[in-house]
Amino acid sequence: MNGALPENAGAETATSFARLVDIGHGRMMYLECHGSGSPTVVLVPGLVAAADTWSYVTGPDGGRKPSSSAVYPAVGRFTRVCSYDRPGTVRENGKFTTSSTVAQPTTARGDVADLHALLKAAKVPGPYVLAGWSAGGPIVRIYAGEYPHEVSGLVLVDAESEFLQSRLTPRQFGTFLALIRNDDKKRIAQWKDVERQNPAIVFGQVRAARPVPKIPVVVLTGDEFDAEAFRARLPAHAPADFPQVFWRAQRASQRDLAGRFPSAQHITKTQSDHNIQNNRPQLVTDAVREVVEKARRRPSGTPSS
């Protein structure tokens, strides 16, 4: 992984490490950190993605490769940065995470508890700017509500939005859930304990969560969509126009998400599909830097809420 020590490194430097951390109850989670400065940026991957998604960029041929221009190493040049593997996630090279397996499916609230335990066990200093991609979005939002005095900013990278459910009819949302189940079946065939979640449960947990405190927020939204690739993931009974229906709902749900944070900056011209951190890493790095700088300008001792 670019920007981090090998996972089997025998010693840690003062600023960098990549290792398994004992979070209690017989469980270990993989964590990597480097750089120095405050606030600490915690990069939260999407579903099934591991820590190293933030260390890869999309090349001209469409493939991904580690790069010094990726988000993780780039953020580490101006502040402390960490990322981690949730249970059941998969590295960019197809290898299964070394984080302890747990019963699947998991929930966003369970992931928040794991992240909090991990940061405390590893003695990662706060306050934190949390950047969540895709399924990482609900995790960082719930975390900020649960631990408002630990979080000084959020960056939501094409984050899952509970408003997707309300922008679709119940029948349309059922088709979306069937797509998710199709994806799960394919992954389980390759990795038995792969991470999976039920979006309906996640969205319900976000709605029930404590509100995010008044902190800097940047929302980045993908603006490119491959309808044919999406169609290939759909169940046979899906309506022919469902890709277009979904895309309209997705764009609207991102506007709704940004609207939850009245002072948020919403970046919609990303020239990227869902994988903004790989396709446009500088855009994500700049958003993180902006939130970090705003957090640094807060008067010392100012509460988050």
Rank of each mutant, 00 (worst) to 15 (best):
K294Y: 08
S67Q: 02
A108R: 01
D273E: 10
Y84I: 04
N275M: 15
G132M: 00
D52I: 08
A74D: 08
E146I: 05
T268D: 08
N182Y: 14
L283M: 01
R27S: 14
T79P: 06
R64C: 15
R196W: 09
G24R: 11
R167V: 10
I23V: 15
D183R: 09
P127I: 07
Q172F: 08
V140W: 03
P105E: 06
A264D: 03
A287K: 07
H266M: 13
V155N: 05
Y30T: 07
L130H: 03
A209K: 06
K65L: 14
E7D: 10
H116I: 11
N8V: 14
Y72D: 04
E146H: 08
W247D: 14
A227W: 03
I276V: 15
E12Q: 12
E150I: 07
N198G: 02
G174T: 00
M1I: 10
V292F: 09
L31D: 01
R77F: 11
M28N: 01
E150Y: 05
R109K: 07
D273N: 11
R19Y: 14
P45K: 02
V292R: 09
Q165L: 09
S99H: 01
K294I: 02
D183Q: 13
L283W: 00
I267Q: 11
A9Y: 04
T107S: 07
G222M: 08
Y143M: 01
A50K: 02
A200Y: 05
R77D: 03
L47E: 07
V245D: 03
P138T: 03
C82W: 01
H237F: 13
V151K: 01
P105V: 05
V151L: 05
S152Q: 02
G76R: 04
E160W: 10
R248N: 04
P235D: 05
L179W: 12
G3S: 11
P66V: 12
T89E: 02
E195K: 08
A295Q: 00
L5N: 10
Q205L: 09
T53K: 04
P303Q: 10
R27Y: 12
K123F: 11
A122N: 14
S300G: 01
A113H: 09
V218E: 02
R260A: 06
V157I: 10
E150F: 03
F96V: 01
R196L: 11
D184Y: 15
V102W: 04
R141G: 04
Q172C: 04
T98R: 10
E160C: 15
P299W: 04
A264S: 09
A51I: 07
P105I: 06
L220W: 07
N182T: 14
L168T: 07
P39A: 02
D241F: 05
S16V: 06
D111T: 00
R171G: 15
L43Q: 00
T97C: 03
K95S: 08
R297D: 09
L179N: 06
A178I: 11
R187I: 14
L283T: 06
G204H: 00
Q254K: 14
R210Q: 08
T101K: 06
R297A: 14
S99K: 00
L179I: 15
L31T: 07
T221S: 15
E146R: 10
G204M: 04
V102K: 00
L43F: 00
E162R: 07
